[in-house]
Structure formats: structure tokens, C-alpha cells
Design a protein around this nucleic acid. Sequence first.
RNA 1: GCGCCUGUAGCUCAGCUGGAUAGAGCAUCGGCCUUCUAAGCCGGCGGUCGCAGGUUCGAGUCCUGCCAGGCGCGCCA
Length: 565
Amino acid sequence: MAHEAIQAELSRVLAEMGAHEAEVQLERPRDPTHGDVATNVALTLARSLKRSPREIADELAAGLDLVRAGVEAVEVAGPGFLNFRLASGAVASVLGDILAQDERYGRSDVGAGRVVMVEFVSANPTGPLHLGHGRQAALGDAIASLLDWTGWSVSREFYYNDSGRQMELLARSVRARYRQMLGKNEPVPDDGYQGEYVKDVAESLVEEVGDRYVEDDSAEALDAVRAHAVRMLRAEQDRDLADFRVRFDHHFLESSLYEEGRVDRTIQSLKDTGLVYEKDDAIWLETSRFGDQKDRVMVRGNGQPTYFLPDVAYHMTKWERGFQRVINVQGSDHHGTVDRVRAGLQALGLPAGYPEYVLHQMVRVEKEGEEVKFSKRAGSGMTLRELYEEVGVDVTRYFFQMRKPDAHLLFDMDVALDQSDKNPVYKVQYAHARMCAIFRKAKLDPNELTSGDADLAMLGHELERELVKELADFPGAVERAAREASPHVLCDYLEQTAGAANSWYHAGNPSRNPELAVLTDDADLRAARLALARGVQVVLRNGLTVLGIDAPDEMIRDEPEDEDA
RNA sequence: GCGCCUGUAGCUCAGCUGGAUAGAGCAUCGGCCUUCUAAGCCGGCGGUCGCAGGUUCGAGUCCUGCCAGGCGCGCCA
């Protein structure tokens, strides 16, 4: 690649100038008049070399020998940037790599096969998944996929609590509905679950056991109701996720921590550290020694552990299962627990900063300018399923991924339902479909296309050069999105690349501009441009695949129904 | 009161370790269909980067203080 040759040559000349350890960053200038590749190394070295940036840049430019790297011109610009203009062949050579690597183009090995766990969704089985879970599902799945693409060995995990107070409340709510169905007047508890789905659970309970629990107030009976509700609601969540194209490698039950004695053992381990003390009948851990705002109670005065303890016990199992790197995807309303869980783990000898967290802000849905709030089924906010059944899985996933997790997300239903390029998902998918259309028209199977003997140097037009450079940026975009655990980086990249592809495609409309058409009579030009079309197709398809979104071969619009019949 | 996140064009948002005249989409205005699908493309309009200081050759980006919004601060999970 030209980049490596330029980098090496810059390092060589810099060493002659006395800057041996200088780190050289190459970038693609926004403005094409600034060349194909640029570096600000002269600016960054000005201080240490005690010379003006322009002077350093001039000396570098004079000393560089870049003919073999395919550089046609070097110029010093602005405050001291070095701009390189490449020969067309050097720019387009990346297409050979793209076509050869095909579905692997964009993958890298920075993870070197190390294991990483991504824990996400982790909803308790008290009802249908809501939009916050949806954002987590889309983000967590994409982050896991990005890590996979960058060479990590990824495990997706779902953690849930199947016992405890909320579960008991759920059981009481179901039991009340169940008894109502069988003619007994028993109200749902005031702080219980009010959604329609509770009636569905109660109904299936009637089918399964008849009136067995109508008069039975025993703990065993309530336990059986709880178990039935958990089974039903877990199954519903699994369906919601499966239809959203999200799957997990492992589900972890909080109850197993108690059954296996892990909570008790964690208490003992923490006591053994000597960082534990008694106050007001409770047992406290000195979490403030590890950056928490204050110490935390781990065992209450009544002898019951606080939730903090199973959290620590659970994360210890992650470490013990060999996951030296863990990313937890959670709503930002959980951020208060981050410091204390880490502190508990540090007390037990785990490294600071374990685990990592991606905390996302809340989701707001708007339709025709009005906020959509209510779901009858959930008894509260809109459910994930209600959303994606209305606008589609591809659109829902993309919208959840296209904003950085830190930002509040406005989900605009009017844009989501729009089937034009106003909708960024369709913009990207349609650019892909356009490339497919070219191959259909040419009666070629794109999968059998190689850059082979195509003369890629013929791709000299500005639109072609820009598009090729855009394609060359794909692996970097994947790598950065993975490093920052930020799928939106890839969304931005795909929208920009789709825009460049659309510009090129339309400039080559045969009726207007035959000299830029792909399917031209000039066989050599045609081969080179087919390679470019294939490159676009591969990059867009791979990018969408990383995000778990379809890359259709053709776009079929829903026809509006006849309104004036 | 304390902590975390956010504040960039009318709207929704990008802006990687501080670097070239601050970008995109939508909205709005003006052009372009005998097509490799116009579900599109080209161009125009539009910004005191919340406010005030500071560091720097250079600040949307770093530091300090303030203002506004969201979330969290329990022997609840």
C-alpha cells in the first residue's frame, strides 16, 4: 500500500533530521484539493525540534523519495501540512484487495483471538422488553460483532434475576389476575404489574392448572405461580430478541449464585480482606478506598445480603471463567452501581476498571411531533416488539445504533417509516441495491468478479478517486468503532460512503453522461468500473452485516394503498 | 448539596490523540428523468460550537467557574 511506503519514507527522513521516535499519522484530507494523503507531522514536531512547522515541512518534502510509493506530487500547504497526490493506479489498487478478501474485507486481527464477554439486555423476567432494552440489544449485538470483526473471541451473555422481591410482586400480580378469571374478586397489588400481559400469563395458568391455586395461599403455591410466570415471560423475551435478530451464547441466573453458595463465599472472601467492618448491626465494605463515594452495606441488619453482593459474586464468575475483558451494556440509570461493583472487585484483587461499561441514555419516540408514551400491553412505555413490528427490524436496529450511546436518542417515527433516502437505512441499502442492479443489467455474477486484468489506473475521474478512497477507509472505520465501542462511527461511515456511491452512480447515468457509465463499450474501462461497483457492493454489504442489518439486492417499496378508489 | 452524561445550523446529529475556510441529513429555495431503478443527483440559504475566563503558534476539542436539561445518590433491585 502507498500509505505504508509513505510512512516508512517519512520516518527515514525524519530520523536524518534528528526526530527518531516521531509518530507519523497519515490522514485523508476532507478537501480533495489537499491531495489524497496528508500528514501534520511537521506541526507536531515544531516544538521538540524548535523550528517552524513550514521549515520542517519544506525540508521533509525535499528529502522524500516517493516515486515507488506511487506519489505524483508532494506539496507543503497551510501552516505546515504535507499533502501527497497519488497516481490513479496507487489509489485504486485497494480494489484488488477488496475483491480478493470479499466477505472478509474489513476484518482485522487487533484482538489477536483474546476472549471478551459482552453482557447486555439482562432484563428481569417481569414483562415484555421495552425500548431501553431494545437500544441495549442493538448496541450490545453490534459491539459484540465489531469485536468479532477485529479479531476478538466474543461471548454474548444475558443475566437475569429469577427470584427476589420483584419476582414475588410479579407472582402476586399474576395470582390476582388468575383468581379474577376464576370469579374471585382479588385486586392486583397497588405496586404490582398492571400491564395486559399479566392477564395472558394468568390465562395460560388457568389452562395449565385449572383452579388449583384459587384458595391456596401457601408459599409453595405462590412459588409455582412465580415459576410459571418466569417461564412464560422469559419465552416471550426470547421471541422478542430472536425476531430482533439478537442471540446469546449464555444466560446466567442470579438464583444460581445463591444455590451454588457463591454469595456466601463472596461474603467470606470480602471479610478475609480486612476491609470489612460492622456498624449499626450491618456489615460494611470500605468501597470508598477504591474510588466509591462512600462505603456500602453488604449485609443488612436483618442478615440479608444487599444486591451489591450478588453483583460482585456474578462478576467474579466472569473473571473466573477466563474473561479478562468484559463490557457491560446498560442504561445510564445504572451508573451509580459502576463504582461500587468495581470497588468490590478491586477489594478481591481484580484490576481497577474491571469491567468496562457502555452506558446509554434514554430513548424517546416521537410521531408527528408528539411523544409516544403508552402501551396497553406493557401498562407503561411502548414495547420493543411494538416498535419493530411497525417500522421493521432493520430500521429499528439502525436507529438505535446510529447515535453514540452517551447521547439521548430521539426515535422519529416519521423518518423511520419513510421509504426514501431521508431514511438513512434505506439510503445505505439502496446504494447497495444499485450496484446489484448494474450487475443484473450486465448479466454478470458479481461473486465471480475479480479485479484480474482490469487496469484500475483508468479510474482517474475525481468521483471515482474519492469513492475508492472512501472504500479504503472501511477497515479503519470498523477498527475505530470497535475500539470505542461505538457502532455509530460505522453508521456515519456507511452513510457517507453510500452518498459517494450515489453521486458516482448518477454521474454515470448513460442518458446524460455516457462517458462515466459503468456499462460502457470500452472493455477496459468497463472492467475497471465493474471492479469499483463490486468494491462498493462488498463494503456496504459487509458494513451492514456487522450491524446485523440486511443488504438487499433490490429495493421493493411498499405501494401505498389506493386511497381514492 | 454531591456525582455521571448532554448542550454545535430552524430540527436531528457527526467532529478520532487540540491542527487547514466547523461537517452531514432533514426543512427551505433553485436546477436535472428517451435511466446502469429520479426510492436519486447537482447547487443556494443557514452556525457568537450554552456563557465567561485561562493554557497554546493554534481550542468545538484541554483547564477553571457559572447556566440549562437528563440520570443517579437507601440496611430497594
